[in-house]
């Protein structure tokens, strides 16, 4: 396709706009990395600098002092994040679809049923009692997955997309003798790749960063999630740094703390960023109705 001069110009402007925008957005992140690669002493003297005045990998060394724990946390987190993502997207799509069909008389009631839980909650204590005392999900990997499988927010988002799908598709499937199952699994899902991929990504990210679940429900070291493990390292650092815990350290070196905090943030965010491009391939420009009609 030949692009006119005007189109080329507008494209160039577009790109310039995003370059500026992204630089602003990424700046704090670069600062983060910069601090993590600096020595603690330099931070004390000069404050946060984009380019470290004194390079040092001490912070990363500290974080990875016990590599087996972190690697295990990576593994555990990856497992439950992926599992939750797959199950959750599937189940929420299954929830959303009936809400768009006129045959389902109860769809208004069901929507309300779902939405009510977004605002009203019994609170942490009853949920805690339910999960630990009755369902015994604590200290298992399922506690990361099951309670949060259905998020009304995402269900409504998916429902909106489903509503926008053209009705002709469904009619033609019906004519061919298909059932709602056929419509759903063979057509609705494939046509909704963009939204399902988006929701999948968001769920994955949410799970990847989850630390609260582990804090409340996990005591078994081998089941700790990544973010929680890193928070612990941070807490222990603070403790070692404070007068209370210092009795335990034999060495007299000052403990790196700010740089470690930043190194941890990089350690957590890094892999998630690597994953993102994988989702991007599902952001395919919409299929035309014509292709289905044929």
């Amino acid at each position: 396709m030949l692009y006119s001069k005007r189109q080329k110009l507008s494209q160039a402007l577009l790109i310039l706009f995003f370059v500026i925008l992204c630089t602003l957005i990424i700046y704090p992140f670069l600062l983060l990395v910069g601090v993590s690669l600096s020595s603690e002493k330099a931070i004390g003297q000069y404050g946060y600098q984009l380019i470290p005045k004194e390079w040092s990998l001490a912070s990363y060394k500290y974080v990875f002092e016990n590599p087996s724990a972190i690697l295990n946390a990576y593994k555990v987190t990856a497992i439950f994040s992926v599992t939750a993502m797959v199950l959750s997207v599937l189940l929420m799509a299954m929830m959303a679809f009936p809400l768009t069909r006129k045959e389902v008389r109860a769809r208004r009631a069901l929507s309300f049923f779902l939405y009510f839980t977004m605002l009203f909650s019994g609170g942490l204590v009853p949920t805690y009692i339910l999960i630990t005392k009755y369902l015994h999900l604590n200290d298992t990997i399922w506690v990361y997955i099951l309670p949060s499988l259905i998020s009304p927010w995402y269900v409504f988002m998916i429902r909106t997309f489903f509503q926008d799908l053209p009705e002709e598709i469904f009619e033609s499937v019906r004519l061919d003798g298909g059932t709602s199952y056929t419509i759903f699994f063979r057509f609705v899902i494939p046509l909704s790749k963009p939204v399902l991929a988006t929701v999948a990504l968001l769920i994955f990210l949410g799970k990847w960063n989850d630390w609260y679940t582990a804090l409340l429900y996990i005591e078994d070291e081998s089941l700790m999630s990544l973010q929680y493990l890193l928070q612990r390292i941070m807490q222990n650092l603070k403790l070692l740094q404070s007068l209370e815990g210092s009795a335990s350290m034999v060495s007299t070196e000052k403990i790196p703390s700010e740089t470690v905090r930043m190194a941890m943030a990089v350690v957590v965010a890094g892999p998630a960023l690597v994953v993102f491009p994988f989702f991007q391939k599902y952001f395919v420009k919409g299929l035309t109705v014509g292709s289905v009609k044929g």
Partner: peptide, 25 residues
């Protein structure tokens, strides 16, 4: 029935994890 069956498990999950503890309000 088919449509309702699709949303049965999700509804159950919501009931279990959101409505059962709601007594705590």
């Amino acid at each position: 029935l088919r449509l309702y069956s699709l949303c049965a498990i999700p509804v159950f999950l919501v009931f279990l994890f959101a409505y059962v503890p709601m007594g705590g309000i």
